[in-house]
Amino acid sequence: MSKDNDLNDLAERAGALGNTHRLTLLEILKKGPLSVDELASRANLSLPNTSRHLQVLRRASLVEAQREGKYVFYRLGEISEYKALIAALRAVRERNAAAVRDLRLDYLRAREQLEPISREELLSRLKDDAVTLIDVRPESEFSSGHIPGALNVPLGLLEACIGQFPSTQEIVAYCRGPHCILSFEAVAALQALGYKVRRLEDGLPQWSAAGLSVVTTP
């Protein structure tokens, strides 16, 4: 087989995976062989549509068909190969998501108007009641553990909670750590509204690991 033919063949097989309905059928077939009727029902597809997708998968050698009486049953061609393909696709997705997140973090860091605050400085300012501390994680995470004195203001509710913040007091936002964008987003939004705001240099996991007090909400 020539190189061009080989690449064309690979492209055809890869293309067979490029459809949500076909991936759904493959996921269903992981549990064992099924008839076209049963596959159509479980995938919530019409019989003709299911048959068309199965033919594409069969040409790509991803499924095999066997007739039993008047019914045709399909099964995965090789489940270990399929699992390896899906694992590879997920790895690419995760790598891409991490790259996008890192780019976003770099962008937000570049826009920061003030240096992040350290744990030591935050502790001192909390003792002096000189700062408003907000935890911008979801409520469920806040309830599981948070810095004493923090207000829970999930990022999506930030605008609605603006009135809670003293306009003359500095705000400090924190979230899950230095690689989480929630506190960056909160700082950018509040700075745009004219508030003096910084973020904690790390997050709750690092705060807890340092042996500092963490409280939970029943």
Rank of each mutant, 00 (worst) to 15 (best):
L89H: 09
G77W: 03
A150F: 07
V172D: 09
E81R: 14
F142C: 04
A98L: 13
A60T: 01
V100M: 12
P154H: 09
S124F: 02
L105I: 15
I79L: 09
A173F: 06
S124V: 02
L157D: 14
R119T: 03
S80V: 08
R109E: 15
R111F: 04
Y71V: 12
A84M: 11
L105V: 13
L182C: 02
A186N: 04
C161R: 15
Q66H: 05
V131T: 03
G145Y: 07
Q164I: 14
R176S: 14
V187H: 04
V100P: 00
S80T: 14
S124M: 04
L122A: 03
L105W: 08
D128Y: 01
P178S: 15
E170M: 11
D128Q: 12
L158P: 04
K70G: 02
P166N: 11
D106E: 14
H146Y: 08
K70W: 06
D129Q: 11
R119C: 08
R95C: 10
V187K: 01
K127E: 14
T132H: 03
S144L: 13
V187S: 05
R90L: 15
S118Q: 04
E141A: 10
A98I: 09
L103I: 09
L155Q: 08
L76Q: 02
V63D: 01
F142M: 08
E64P: 00
I117L: 12
L103M: 14
G156F: 01
K127I: 08
Q113P: 03
K83E: 15
R137F: 06
P116A: 10
A97H: 07
R75H: 02
R137V: 02
V136E: 07
R119P: 07
A130R: 08
R93H: 11
K83T: 12
L155W: 06
D128L: 09
V100A: 12
A110G: 05
I117E: 12
D106V: 10
S144F: 08
A186M: 04
Q169S: 10
D135L: 04
E81V: 14
A150Y: 05
L108V: 03
F184A: 08
S144G: 15
L103T: 09
S140K: 13
R104H: 10
G69P: 05
A60W: 03
R101A: 15
V63A: 01
G77Y: 07
G156A: 09
D135F: 03
L157M: 13
D129C: 02
R95M: 13
Y71L: 12
R104A: 15
R176V: 00
F165R: 05
L182F: 06
G145Q: 06
A98S: 14
P154G: 05
L155C: 05
V72N: 08
R125V: 00
A91R: 13
G145M: 06
S118F: 00
D106I: 08
V72S: 07
C161M: 15
E68S: 11
S183Q: 08
R75K: 11
H146M: 10
R95L: 13
A130I: 00
A150T: 05
C180E: 05
F142A: 04
E112K: 01
A173E: 10
